[in-house]
Write a protein that binds this DNA or RNA. Structure first.
Lengths: 348, 348
DNA sequence: GCTAGCACTCTCGCGCTCCGAGTGCTAAGC
DNA sequence: GCTTAGCACTCGGAGCGCGAGAGTGCTAGC
């Protein structure tokens, strides 16, 4: 069962079966290939090839008198070849300049990171017709600013500006603080902690910083507690999901029992994390059983990392059936990640 | 077809049919009522009542030899009586002190408005097993603070603290500004605009404020532009949705064609808005066709406004089949709105 | 006014047959 | 030796009819 046993004709046949199955979602017959694809041989010969491909695990036959369906292994081979440039993407799978332009225009209006991510998921869902996800930037972000803003006597707003994202939290004050006092605490802490990855802001580091702030120990502790939560396991990563109901348009998910696990996985942050991460460098494709989440077998995930100022920050991607126009999906996801990188590097 | 034609026995029968149908999701037969509910009369007599209720539009008969199913009208009557206290809620629909306690504990740990809303949707989904939604506070919120924080030479972070929520936006600077300068602009604008509803911060008001800031016209304009967007039509209302896939557990949504419109409505912000808003005072129930969004017929929405410092701010609610344990759902939604009001009033 | 009895209706599930699509194999041809 | 035409074979799916069962509506009697 070595993948290398595929000669030129078998490749031709396999690609044709994939293309045909992607388009029609029904087992592909030898006749259909014969007179829709110029393979130059008769249906009988194609049958021989299909038979061999079935034995090799690239095709699957639902029952004796049915056509063939590509297996995960077939898609994997196809995608590998595609990404290595050894297979030309079908004409209509390329992104036209007009499409690129439309995507760019939709994205560039957003001057708020979360809006941009939401728009990215939305655009991807609209263009692929699959559920789409964009994660907020995560990973070891470095702190840039801390600001405490007075809200009331017993609480203040802590604004944390980090690379790629900023967030705000409420901190409680055990005793009132003036605006001036808060400003001073912010300044001292910012100076001490700037440039540190949020996850590395430990007690020790901060205590040192707090030395310059006698009498405000509890406030410093409160700020620290928030920072730790912010930069901890959860790391503030959130997901924008769009077009979830699109999955129900796909013929393979007409059965609720097949669709529900997928929707359930898209519902929960923990599984979403597993599905999309770890963030790949370029585009990453997970086909069928390659997915870590049970019940997502039958799905493929195409995801790409976007970058903020050069560093991988978060992920955008789509979840669709394994029967998917990979060339086009990959091109779209890749381009969206690029555009998003660009947009976000201007933002925050 | 006057609703008042219902005598005591018809009421009894109707409530029993509803309860039985909610529990079993199958047309209810007269026999079943007879020996599962102590109505004190025979099946034949119950049949007479059911026949009459069918003619009056409270029950529906899928086919001649089938049992009865409650109509929207029946649920409406039931819910009206329930909320007026004229029908006692079934025993097991009441919230136990233990449940209340659990809800309160889950919610009170959240010190960030968005976390609290997310948790509210999550809790509601977990307890009802229906898709659940929580909206961020909207409406005419009054400004409390403006803060500009330097990010880089060409941009600053604008933190807008308003009643019930705070947000942050990036503003571009046409020329660099020092931290001190930004602080000054923030102070002047805050002093001038504090207390105004975001939607009423017009050009004129702000120009007046800006008079004190010669040479920073463009910065003031940039801030204004952001405020206007922030407080405009979209008003920054966002939705946290949880448990979407739960709808597929319901027997009435085993058919994808019935489920998809519902999921699609939950996907899109515009329809969500229509589904949940306008924010009602206490709990508001929309049954079947009462829903403004086509394709949500067959669903009921139970929603309640939560308040921030006494004013209605946003909404939490669930979307389920019309066949729903209304007493319990209403109690849950109501209690969650209360808890959320409490949590958010401490936050921001 | 209530109830027992009974005929009637309609759905659902089962088994049956038939049709057609598509294969695998074989034997002949280039 | 690879390719191809021809053909038998297999299997799923649609369509049909039937019987069982559930549940009603009606009527006659209490």
């Amino acid at each position: 069962m070595l993948a290398h046993e595929l000669d030129a004709r078998k490749h031709q046949i396999l690609w044709a079966v994939i293309q045909e199955y992607v388009a029609r979602a029904e087992p592909v017959a030898s006749e259909a290939l014969c007179h829709r694809y110029g393979l130059g041989v008769s249906a009988a010969t194609i049958r021989l090839g299909m038979h061999a491909l079935t034995e090799m695990g690239y095709l699957y036959q639902p029952h004796t008198s049915a056509g063939r369906v590509p297996t995960d292994r077939a898609y994997r081979l196809y995608v590998d070849r595609l990404m290595a440039g050894q297979v030309p993407p079908p004409e209509d799978h390329r992104l036209t300049p007009a499409e690129r332009e439309r995507i760019r225009r939709r994205m560039q209006a957003k001057d708020h990171a979360e809006d941009a991510l939401e728009e990215a998921a939305h655009t991807l869902a609209a263009l692929t017709d699959y559920p789409s996800v964009a994660s907020t930037p995560g990973g070891p972000r470095r702190l840039r600013h801390l600001h405490l803003i007075p809200l009331a006597d017993d609480r203040a707003l802590l604004v944390v500006v980090a690379e790629g994202a900023s967030e705000q939290r409420v901190v409680r004050l055990q005793r009132p603080a003036t605006e001036e006092e808060l400003r001073q605490v912010s300044q001292v802490l910012t100076r001490a902690l700037r440039g540190l990855p949020l996850s590395e802001i430990t007690e020790a580091v901060a205590q040192q910083a707090a030395a310059a702030l006698p009498g405000r120990q509890e406030l410093v502790n409160a700020v620290l507690a928030q920072l730790r939560r912010h930069g901890g396991v959860r790391a503030g990563v959130r997901f924008f999901v769009d077009g979830v109901s699109n999955i129900l348009k796909q013929p393979e998910f007409q059965d609720v029992h097949r669709a529900r696990p997928v929707l359930a996985a898209l519902d929960r942050e923990e599984t979403l994390r597993d599905v999309l991460l770890p963030a790949p460098c370029d585009v990453h494709v997970r086909i069928g059983r390659e997915n870590p989440v049970d019940g997502m077998w039958g799905c493929s995930v195409v995801a790409a990392a976007y970058r903020v100022r050069g560093r991988p920050a978060g992920v955008v991607g789509v979840v669709g059936p394994t029967r998917m126009p990979y060339a086009r999906t990959i091109a779209l996801v890749r381009y969206l990640a690029q555009t998003l990188s660009h947009t976000l590097s201007r933002t925050v």
